[in-house]
Write a protein that binds this DNA or RNA. Structure first.
Lengths: 201, 201
DNA sequence: GTCTATACAAGGATAGAC
DNA sequence: GTCTATCCTTGTATAGAC
């Protein structure tokens, strides 16, 4: 909390900001430390004052991305604890997507870079990911136990499918061109009630 | 169709087989021509007899992957032309997933490598991709026009979400450990009717 | 159709000055 | 905290022999 500590954090932050942006647009492997340094306005060697390696830099970004998502989930959980099941799900979908598109490139990079990340990085971040996934699983199982989701639905599988639907949006959705609420509604609706027109009574 | 031509095709095929496998497991950027050559049992330089560049090799694989998917769609369309709407959708989901997991690593590589592929490669393959996507759009719009999908559903958006759900499976589903039919049913069901338990009358 | 040998560029990482 | 300079490895690609 001293001034020097704060400056060090800022130094790291400037680097992760640019790196996350570049990782997201060009990919981790395709982005060199020289590229990142140039974007920050420093030289490649200087990065090693703040990070041990390129992998270490990536890990820091993945961690921050996940933190944003976890915080978003918890805030939404509190805000909608007593809402209708359908609305709770919709709110969480909305908040996951908002984390993906409105909180800088950290979360989105987490989604795109995780699978191609070096083994050590992936292993290091997995426990945190599990935490986040467990939050969703808990929510959905609660809804199922309360009779709002069909008994036959495999929550584990359904959650993965829902994540696929949400996370794939980072590859084609552009918040400045599209409507995030509309996207969230589409995904939540599709998950909850499907697209079919129910036979009218 | 001469013998020498056939042999040339086989030579290419041996390389694309191994390359697709390596691209899928390790990523395009992380796979070197030396890696591929070693897997085939030749030397890196020899690859250039068959392909102009590494990008050219990737493009050949992406093309093959897409061809499999298009063929699968057409076969399914013919087989289920007169089936119930719900069953038609389920059959196409099943066939898309089957293409992803049962026809070698070509299709799966298409899904994972497309977004990080070099611009030239992506541009070259886009028209073919559009063809495939148009097939799905047509199917879904037909169902909507016939009153089987709610009018308010945006087919373009819903199709993207469905693709995200299906394609994301390449990142976590393992056909030897999991049940493909079960996965297909989950995705198709989730898309068509959602997970909610409908209020009983 | 494949080999050897090699050119050439680019990237991660380190050492020491400032 | 950043710079310069540099080492070392790896990767794509080419040339010419076999």
């Amino acid at each position: 909390m001293t001034q020097s500590t704060e400056q060090q954090i800022d130094g790291r932050q400037r680097i992760t900001d640019e790196a996350a942006h570049l990782f997201l647009t060009n990919g981790y492997a395709q982005t060199s430390l020289r590229d990142i340094a140039a974007a920050v306005g420093i030289k490649a060697g200087s990065i090693y004052y703040h990070f041990d390696s390129k992998d270490d830099l990536l890990l820091a970004i993945l961690r921050q991305g996940l933190d944003v998502m976890i915080d978003a989930f918890e805030a939404t959980a509190q805000a909608t604890a007593h809402a209708e099941p359908q609305d709770r799900v919709a709110a969480h979908v909305r908040s996951h997507l908002a984390a993906l598109f409105e909180h800088g490139p950290y979360t989105a990079t987490h989604v795109t870079a995780f699978h191609t990340a070096p083994d050590e990085v992936r292993t290091a971040i997995v426990p945190d990911r599990d935490d986040y996934e467990a939050m969703w699983t808990e929510l959905l199982m609660e809804l199922q136990n309360d009779g709002h989701i069909r008994r036959r639905v495999d929550i584990g599988l359904s959650r993965l499918v829902l994540f696929g639907a949400m996370n794939s949006a980072v590859e084609w959705f552009h918040p400045e061109r599209g409507n995030l609420d509309r996207l969230a509604t589409t995904i939540a609706d599709q998950f909850w009630r499907g697209v079919r027109k129910e036979p009218s009574t």
